[in-house]
Amino acid sequence: MAAKDSPLKQFEIDPISNIELVGYNISFTNSSFAMMITVLVITLFLTLTVNTKTIIPSRMQLISELMYNFIAQLLSDTVGDNGKRYFPFVFSLFMFVLIGNMVGMIPYQFTFTSHIIVTFALAAVVFIGVTILGFVNHGIKFFSFFYIPGVPFYMHPLLIPIEVISYLSRPISLSVRLFANMLAGHTLLKVFASFVVSMPFFTGVFPLAFIVALTGLEILIAFLQAYVFAILTCLYINDAYHLH
């Protein structure tokens, strides 16, 4: 298979316009374009479908309210009343990842959530924010998060490093989970798409049918990963409030 037909070619970043800022390359790329589309879709949809004048919502407004209630419920289930303050952030995060994944499902569209640097940045924001929140809420006591009560004392030298490592690997697991899911799904789609073209006669319909089914699965995964990202963020916020 030639390099230009590689299933990973879809993840390549092409600058649309080259911009440089104090020596750094901040070109507006196809990835940035996908982010812009995502943000536009979310803001326009959530603003235009919601009519504050009427009591009975339109069908589109129901979707917006459904999303709102979904995340509000998620936050109140995991964090409780404290969670209301973080609702805009968790909601933005969920919508950004969800619509980013969905925009990526459009053929020939770029999937920015398949880039580890993007997902890692999002996860890092969550990780740093939650850590700061933990210190703000508990001060130096936040370190007791790594101390598991009710364990024999001689186990602590082993358990505390494990806890620290698991805490520090949170942003990695959070970002790699999303990145790897998107990467794998889109690569698989591309591989099967190349089968459709390369297989002789009408046999190409079989991988085509598989792609159709896989697209459905990918849409499910797109939602699921956004959900997982949001619920893990909620759980981390909860940890920052209730140490153990």
Binding site: P15, S27, T29, S31, M35, M36, P88, S92, M95, F112
Partner: peptide, 28 residues
């Protein structure tokens, strides 16, 4: 393109967050 990715992510996500926080979510 790491810097470009991070830069535009920051720009768009910040915009999205502020817009939803200040406009869309209060409306809903």
């Amino acid at each position: 393109f790491f810097v470009s990715q991070l830069f535009w992510l920051a720009v768009f996500f910040t915009f999205l967050f502020v817009f939803l926080w200040r406009v869309s979510l209060p409306r809903i």
